[in-house]
Amino acid sequence: MADRIAINDLSRHASSTETAVRASVERVLASGWYVLGRDGEAFEREFAEYCGTDHCVGVANGTDAIELGLRALGVGAGSRVATVANAGSYTTTALAALGAHPVFVDVDPDTKLMDPDRLGRVVEEGNLDAVVVTHLFGLLHDMEEILRVASRGGVAVFEDCAQAHGARRDGRRAGSFGAAASFSFYPTKNLGALGDGGAVVTGIPEVAERVRRLRQYGWESKYRISVRGGRNSRLDELQAAVLRAKLPLLDGWNARRREIAARYSREIVHPKVRCPEVHGEEFVAHLYVVVSDDREALRAHLAEASVLTDVHYPVPDHRQPCLAELGPWPGLPVTDELAASILTLPCYPELSDEEVARVIFHINTW
């Protein structure tokens, strides 16, 4: 049997970055300073510059970044926040921690991103406090359209960029459009640490300062708490140093991901498999997701051929048992249809051309 093609392979990634990462870790170990030190400060500067924002605040993980970023924008108990239900429940988890209420918006069947027309209807209904736009699977939304729709209701827009590090549209990168944005640096992300990590980026100094206080107990100075809702959520020096070592390589990795995705989209030709269109720099191919009405049969066929797959995500937020008591929820027909038919194929920078060809062959011969 041919060697297995994994959905992702962090061991290959570790091998390709070992020299730079090892030097970064050793530098931190020698410094004797492991939290909120020089590497953390340097990474915040460098990542803000990369994103095209004025401020970056490192936090412990991507979900904290959503929660603390939204809290810094004034979202709290009783707030109503528009979001999608097909993105793994991360925003919904953050909203629950805030005591806020999700207002689910259905998605476009092709992009799988929030449908601006449906968002417009929600905005027109009023009583909305914020919008969280998720750049799902690495595709940067048409943010000019989203901002135009949200502005009709005077609603702040927050970007969830956990899957879109480096995605660019009209010269601007993900995270630079909204009032603030969150990033995750979980190891499988386009820019990943050696553990959990996250960040909030923003062009608003007051928001950045509020996040800085919230990530460390709400302190305005040591042991003096000025902001409620704070916690211990700091990006440690080891993770910051690793991310600094990897950041210069990110655009190259994204280009390779995009190359693999484009080849899939051009060469997978099967009447029962629908592929994404070929995109430009607005897509960083964090995940490559196809649609098939016979998903389980396709998945079994690929598994037999030693090609591993996954489903991102099988249970939409409005179908999660923990949210049942907050319903009934409005119908989300596109979201439900996609949840039953999407399938994620292997797509990561270290995937070889031969492996890509094997994936394509096994799908086309299904």
Rank of each mutant, 00 (worst) to 15 (best):
E209P: 00
W253Y: 15
F183A: 04
P187G: 05
A255C: 06
K246E: 08
Y217G: 00
Y223D: 15
V227D: 05
T202Q: 12
G178H: 02
L247Q: 10
Y223E: 13
Y223S: 13
R212E: 15
A241W: 00
S182M: 11
L235V: 11
L194R: 08
L247Y: 05
F183C: 08
G175W: 07
A262Y: 02
R266I: 03
R257V: 01
R244T: 11
R234C: 12
S184H: 08
Y186G: 05
S176P: 09
V227W: 06
N190Q: 14
A180L: 12
D251M: 08
G195Q: 04
T202C: 06
L191E: 01
K222W: 13
G197I: 01
N190D: 11
L250M: 10
K246T: 05
A245Q: 03
G252R: 15
E206N: 10
A208E: 01
K272N: 13
S221G: 10
E206Y: 01
I268A: 11
L243S: 03
S221H: 07
K272R: 14
R215P: 03
L243H: 05
R224L: 13
T202F: 09
A240I: 06
G192W: 02
R274M: 11
E237V: 10
A240Y: 00
A180R: 02
S182D: 00
L238M: 08
A262F: 04
Y186A: 15
L243M: 08
A208Q: 02
R212D: 12
D196E: 14
R263V: 14
A181S: 15
R212W: 05
D196I: 03
R274H: 11
Y186M: 03
V200R: 09
A199E: 07
R224K: 13
A193L: 05
R257M: 07
E267H: 12
L191A: 06
E259K: 10
R215I: 10
F185R: 00
A181R: 06
G197Q: 04
R244A: 13
L250H: 11
A240E: 01
R234I: 15
R274G: 05
E220T: 13
F183K: 04
R244V: 00
V242Q: 00
P187V: 04
V278D: 08
Y217R: 13
P205Y: 09
D236H: 09
V207Q: 03
G178Q: 04
S176Q: 03
A241K: 03
R212S: 12
R213M: 14
A255M: 06
F185N: 00
T188W: 01
S176I: 03
G230H: 07
D251K: 08
G229I: 00
F185H: 10
N254M: 03
G230V: 07
D196V: 07
V242W: 00
I225K: 14
Q216R: 14
A174C: 14
I204C: 12
R213W: 04
E209G: 11
D236Y: 01
Y264P: 02
V278A: 07
L191W: 07
A199Q: 09
N232K: 13
Y223P: 01
R173G: 10
Y264T: 05
K222P: 12
S221D: 14
A193D: 11
A174E: 09
V273N: 05
L235S: 07
S176T: 12
K272Q: 13
S265I: 08
T202V: 09
R257H: 06
Q239H: 14
V273S: 06
A262M: 09
A193N: 07
L191I: 07
P276S: 13
R266M: 08
L249N: 08
